[in-house]
Design a protein around this nucleic acid. Structure first.
Length: 908
DNA sequence: CTGGATACGTA
DNA sequence: CGTACGTATCCAGT
């Protein structure tokens, strides 16, 4: 495979990260490598590409990448001007080092640094350790000082040009090039000098002269001792520079005994974290490298522990006595994995294994498993099972609790309780920005094990399963059960370490069941009204379309931005709007602006009317499609999508039903009270985010305003504009309102000016007046970003974290995006915490009072409930109490409640 | 058929 | 050059 490494010896690959990244940076054109967000990636790409080549060619068994630290080294202490005179690091390079670090982490390659030392010293130390342990050692660096390490075991790969041409500098190659053996290379370098390190050598002395002297006097010491014997101009120059040469030699000696946090046994090669690589390479838009990398590590070479996980035999439990006996004997907690056929759970697979320390030392074989055929249980067994499932004192672990809960409750009326962990939720609390919480992804990421089937067992729906397939499904489920238990052990410990155990067990886990109930309930839809709306909107669409076509004298697809651009900017020759990737935007803001500038161009007016109507029809049609057989619409809430802690709603999304326009609001008439219930109730928090801001900032004026029940925007307006509250005009009020909300989003004066259609100067003075009056708000917002930058994350009032690594990015766009996210996350996230607590309170309150009313929808700051006959008053009081009492802030939480037969009518 | 880009609804 | 989402459509790529 390679010419110099022996196949029987382990190979240690050591890379000087900074040096090679820098080479890569200059080898590849920076303008050709950047992401859509403007992050330059040429060094990352070049470095990673080089690394993949090296892994392929050299097949190292061990690997490390050494980096310099920005802190001074002992060399700086010895020589003020060490490395001085280097031109400043190009801006485009900064930050790519961090990204390379992230690539290495994802590849499971250790990076090594040492305070007070350079990467070279780290490499020299590891190379020496490797050599002592009888490794073949390869050093990849653009720093010639490394030549001193070369010997029979150590070879330097020194870039000739770029980062792909890496000739092997073994002892013979060094000697051929520099006329001295490797161990004397630093002697030679001391005489010749090293520009890169700002170490001037002896003028007029090049490698040839230096080598001659070194050979003649047996090393640098000899040369210095006999300096006065050396004749000629070069000898004179040497005598004038003796101190420089001694200093050079002192500085270019690499340290081979640096104390390092890692040893060789930490540096074994392992496969990359596929998911992390995918995520990172996608983000960096260097996807072409993925196949090259994964080609190196064929699936079978991934660190698959599947075969090490021996799924336990599954004891078939049918009789009540068997069931109880098994459950009594199983160590806690029990992993619960349902097998699904269609939408119905047919079999439950139960797995348990003692935690390390809980059982025997060699606990590997102690896992136990059982399966329960749900279709073949007699009444006593059914009762025993139901008792255990509903026993909150019987600890269980499941993946995707809400789905399992619905499956059992909806399909078989079995109520699940006592779930102590769900990795799809604990994984989310640990890393709310992840995009997948599939069992396999989590296992790979957190446990470094790779399971082939990431789907919960039982995703298949084939009706006629052969026996073998059935066995496979059972074995997969059993294996997933084990993974579930181990994952849960890890995640639970991590959450506890962080102090977030309560957030998990007292908020998210119980909420999953509440959401499950809401999804099962759904909300009744008025079918007749839906079709009436479809007709109305269709009429409006047709009219608008006819009008638009009449103006331009031809028929186009009004839904095609491309065709719209051609008509608006070419045919009609109207002024250009904001530039976007595909030309000029035709979004509503821009069109509205154009209408103003063209004095109401009829095509544009018709276009907006068309857009409005078709958007509404589209929404209505979506709803029509999602009405279930029970005449109700069942949305799905996703508990682990929004990085701030909010819920999201999908299939259909009931959190974006129109309300702002009269026409749109009519869609809310579709959502009505269902049979057996009296009315709908809506309850929402007023200005919850502003109240949270007042609370978190501790701004006395703002807090007092809320306590006094003032009209918030009027109050703020009176302070900002310096007028009496009653003299605040509607225009002033709306400006202040926009600004107040904008602040929580990191709004800039530019953004404010654009939104309010005022000058940037006016926007800026508006903001400074605002902050002059509400200084604590400014201090708070500033503090959030500082703290987040320091800690790496933001926190909500319930301790929910969001990690924002981009806060320290040197890419301005990325960094500023992270800063705005940091401003918003604690506010939006705290609001999410509060309404989630309120939902739990309402749910428990309803149960405790024995009411029949139920919660149906959550829309971030609003709840919609279905009220049973005669429960209006009690429920109103209960909801108010629970929502208002969900947090103890320094301001009251105002809740407004409305009743009505439809969502529209219940608004207030 | 998939995915990016665009547009737009909500809090 | 305002956060957080989900969905529909068009269109160019596979």
């Amino acid at each position: 495979m390679t010419e110099t490494t022996s196949p029987d010896k382990p190979t240690l690959l050591l890379i000087d990260g900074h040096s090679m990244a820098f080479r890569a940076f200059f080898a590849l054109p920076v303008e050709k490598f950047s992401t859509t967000t403007g992050q330059h990636t040429n060094a990352v790409y070049g470095f990673t590409s080089m690394l993949i080549n090296l892994l392929k060619q050299e097949r190292p068994t061990h690997i490390a990448v050494a980096f310099d630290l920005s802190t001074p080294t002992f060399r700086d202490a010895q020589y003020d001007a060490y490395k001085a005179g280097r031109s400043a690091t190009p801006n485009e390079f900064k930050g790519q080092i961090d990204l390379i670090g992230r690539v290495l982490t994802a590849m499971n390659i250790r990076t090594v640094t040492a305070e007070g030392f350079e990467a070279d010293d780290v490499i020299a130390t590891l190379a020496t350790q490797g050599e002592d342990a009888d490794f073949d050692v390869l050093v990849v660096t653009g720093d010639r000082d490394a030549f001193q390490l070369v010997d029979d075991a150590v070879t330097v790969l020194y870039p000739r040009k770029g980062v792909t041409d890496l000739p092997r500098m073994d002892a013979a190659a060094v000697e051929e090039k520099y006329f001295v053996p490797p161990n004397r290379y630093p002697d030679l370098a001391a005489l010749v000098g090293e520009t890169a390190d700002n170490l001037p050598g002896v003028p007029g002395v090049g490698p040839k002269t230096a080598a001659k002297w070194i050979t003649q006097y047996d090393g640098l010491e000899g040369v210095l001792a006999h300096a006065d014997e050396i004749k000629g101009k070069a000898g004179e120059a040497l005598r004038e520079r003796l101190d420089d040469v001694r200093r050079n030699r002192q500085l270019n000696r690499l340290i081979t005994d640096v104390e390092l946090p890692v040893g060789l046994d930490h540096l074994g090669m392992s496969a990359p974290d596929r998911e992390a690589i995918d995520e990172l390479f996608d983000a960096l838009e260097i996807r072409t490298l993925q196949p090259r990398l994964f080609e190196l590590f064929g699936e079978e070479q991934q660190p698959v522990v599947t075969e090490e996980i021996v799924p336990p035999e599954l004891a078939p439990l049918t009789a009540a006595a068997e069931l109880t006996a098994w459950l009594d004997a199983a160590p806690a907690p029990v992993a619960l994995v349902p097998l699904v056929d269609g939408a119905d759970a047919t079999t439950l697979v139960l797995v348990a294994e003692p935690a390390p320390g809980q059982g025997r030392e060699d606990a590997a074989g102690d896992a136990v498993g059982a399966r329960i055929d749900l279709t073949g249980l007699d009444a006593p067994a059914e009762t025993a099972l139901a008792g255990w499932l509903g026993d909150r004192a019987a600890p269980k672990v499941v993946h995707d609790l809400k789905t399992v809960y619905k499956l059992l409750r909806g399909g078989r009326g079995l109520v699940l309780d006592g779930v102590v962990d769900d990795p799809s939720l604990s994984g989310y609390l640990l890393q709310p920005d992840r995009r997948s919480y599939e069992l396999g992804d989590l296992a790979q990421h957190h446990l470094r094990i790779s399971i082939a089937a990431t789907e919960a067992a039982g995703a298949q729906t084939e009706l006629d399963l052969t026996g073998d397939e059935e066995q496979t499904r059972l074995a997969t489920a059993a294996r997933n059960g084990i993974v579930l238990l181990r994952l849960s052990r890890y995640l639970t410990a991590e959450l506890a370490d962080r102090g977030s155990a309560d957030l998990m067990t007292r908020l998210e886990l119980p909420l999953a069941k509440v959401l499950g109930d809401m999804e099962l309930a759904g909300i009744a839809a008025d079918a007749a009204h839906l079709s009436a709306l479809t007709d109305d909107f269709t009429t409006a669409i047709d009219a608008a379309q006819r009008e638009a076509f009449a103006v331009i004298g031809k028929e186009i697809n009004l839904g095609s931005p491309k065709q719209l651009q051609a008509v608006i900017f070419d045919d009609l020759g109207l002024p250009k709007t904001k530039k976007i990737k595909t030309g000029y935007t035709t979004d509503a803001d821009a069109i509205t602006d154009l209408i103003a500038r063209t004095d109401g161009h009829p095509f544009l007016v018709a276009l907006l009317a068309y857009r409005d109507a078709s958007k509404l029809r589209q929404t209505v049609e979506g709803l029509v499609k999602s009405v279930a057989d029970d005449g109700r619409i069942h949305t799905t809430y996703v508990q682990n999508i929004a990085a701030t802690g909010r819920l999201s709603s999908m299939n259909p999304n009931l959190q974006n039903i129109p309300i702002r326009t009269d026409e749109g609001r009519r869609i809310r008439e579709v959502f009505v009270v269902g049979g057996g219930y009296r009315t709908l109730l809506t309850a929402d928090y007023s200005q919850i985010e502003m109240r949270i801001m007042a609370h978190l900032s501790g701004d006395e004026a703002l807090i007092q305003a809320f306590r006094d029940g003032e009209d918030l925007h009027r109050f703020v307006g009176s302070h900002v504009f310096g007028v009496a509250p009653e003299d605040v005009t509607p225009a002033m009020r709306s400006k202040v309102k926009a600004m107040s909300y904008g602040l929580a989003y990191g709004l800039s004066s530019f953004g404010l000016s654009k939104q309010l259609a005022i000058g940037v100067d006016e926007a800026r003075s508006l903001m400074s007046d605002y902050f002059a009056r509400f200084g604590a708000v400014r201090d708070y917002l500033r503090g959030i970003v500082e703290t987040a930058r320091k800690d790496g994350y933001t926190s909500t009032i319930e301790g929910r974290r969001r990690y924002l690594p981009d806060l320290s990015s040197d890419n301005r766009q990325l960094r500023e995006m992270a800063e705005r996210a940091a401003l918003n996350a604690p506010i939006q996230g705290s609001a999410a915490d509060i309404i989630k607590k309120a939902m739990l309170g309402v749910d428990r309150g309803i149960a405790a009072a024995g009411l029949s009313s139920r919660m149906l929808l959550q829309v971030h700051d609003e709840l919609v409930l279905e009220v049973a006959d005669g429960e209006e008053e009690q429920l109103t009081a209960l909801v108010r109490e629970q929502m208002a009492g969900a947090a103890d802030l320094s301001v009251p939480l105002d809740v407004s409640v409305g009743l009505g037969r439809s969502w529209h009518d219940a608004a207030h």
